[in-house]
Amino acid sequence: MTTVTPVQTPVRPGTPADAPGVPDDTVLSVRGLRKDFTLHTIDGRVVDALHGVDLDVRPGEHVALAGTSGAGKSTLLRCVYRTYLSGAGHIWFRTAGGELLDVAGLPDAEAADLRGQEIGYVSQFLRPQPRRSVISIVASAGVARGMDRTEARDAAAAALRQVAIAEHLWDMHATVLSGGQKQRVNIAAGTIAPPRLLLLDEPVSALDPANRAAVLDLIARLEETGTAVLSVFHDLDAIERLATRVVVLGGGRVLATGAPGDILRNPNLPLEVAR
């Protein structure tokens, strides 16, 4: 049994008629998304991770995913970024040019191009290629989003200053950095020439209080650029500060959605956040 099955080929360019129920003003519209995993090394059982998730994110909106461990939050981000193939459903992404693409069904090469140009992803881990300098990692993200090399290097320097990476580290190989430094380099690369959609998976988990505050400030300013953000935090204060809306997942399904103040203090919802 295979773990996943490719879904329908996307319509290009997309229109609302091609994607029923997708609002005209969204950057991301997830519809009926399903994902399972086959435990080949254990007993071959199939574990369901997502069970028909629907979700929208608009320009300048910050949607935070909440829920207990195993609820499907990181799996959802990876399906949107297409490092996981989904089993069924659609992941409609509206490009800067107005095309409506189903990320779930794009060929791998087209999905990779879209990731480089319009969709950013920041996790709590940076896995840099050997012998790549800190500044080249960040600058290459800017080049992928349309900057020329000189402009990208200048923007990379500014981004590294914003996340307090000392200049004497810029030309060092990123593999020698500490975990917190790598996380800040990851943030710099994710926010340079801000993408149309930014996915954040625990981006401040390894940071000390001062650097955490600086990174949260940087993420907060993304609203001004119109960047749509879909995030996972296990930090109630960060969610309250950044999110315009919270979506609660449980058992791979959407259990609730609403304003942070309403959702995060609802004792009937399965949340796993810390102050």
Results as ranks from 00 to 15, higher is better:
residue 3 T to I: 13
residue 5 T to Q: 15
residue 7 V to G: 14
residue 8 Q to R: 15
residue 9 T to D: 14
residue 9 T to W: 11
residue 12 R to K: 01
residue 21 G to Q: 05
residue 23 P to I: 07
residue 27 V to D: 08
residue 34 R to L: 00
residue 36 D to H: 15
residue 36 D to E: 05
residue 38 T to G: 03
residue 41 T to E: 14
residue 41 T to A: 15
residue 49 A to K: 11
residue 55 L to T: 00
residue 57 V to H: 01
residue 63 V to N: 02
residue 63 V to D: 07
residue 73 K to I: 04
residue 75 T to N: 04
residue 76 L to D: 09
residue 79 C to F: 04
residue 82 R to L: 06
residue 93 F to L: 06
residue 94 R to M: 05
residue 94 R to H: 05
residue 95 T to H: 04
residue 101 L to D: 07
residue 101 L to K: 09
residue 104 A to T: 01
residue 105 G to T: 02
residue 107 P to R: 08
residue 112 A to W: 06
residue 118 E to H: 13
residue 118 E to C: 05
residue 119 I to N: 04
residue 121 Y to T: 12
residue 123 S to Y: 13
residue 123 S to G: 14
residue 124 Q to A: 12
residue 124 Q to H: 13
residue 126 L to N: 07
residue 129 Q to E: 15
residue 130 P to S: 09
residue 130 P to L: 06
residue 130 P to W: 11
residue 132 R to I: 07
residue 132 R to K: 14
residue 137 I to H: 05
residue 138 V to L: 08
residue 143 V to Y: 04
residue 159 A to L: 10
residue 160 L to Y: 09
residue 160 L to M: 11
residue 162 Q to S: 11
residue 163 V to S: 12
residue 164 A to E: 15
residue 166 A to G: 14
residue 179 G to L: 03
residue 184 R to G: 09
residue 186 N to M: 04
residue 186 N to E: 04
residue 191 T to A: 05
residue 194 P to W: 07
residue 195 P to H: 07
residue 195 P to C: 06
residue 198 L to P: 04
residue 200 L to E: 09
residue 201 D to A: 13
residue 203 P to N: 02
residue 204 V to N: 11
residue 204 V to P: 00
residue 208 D to F: 08
residue 211 N to F: 12
residue 216 L to P: 01
residue 221 R to E: 14
residue 222 L to A: 05
residue 226 G to E: 04
residue 226 G to M: 02
residue 226 G to R: 12
residue 232 V to G: 10
residue 232 V to C: 13
residue 233 F to Q: 03
residue 234 H to I: 00
residue 237 D to H: 14
residue 242 L to V: 00
residue 248 V to C: 01
residue 250 G to D: 14
residue 256 A to Y: 12
residue 261 G to M: 06
residue 266 N to G: 07
residue 267 P to N: 09
residue 272 E to G: 10
residue 274 A to Q: 15
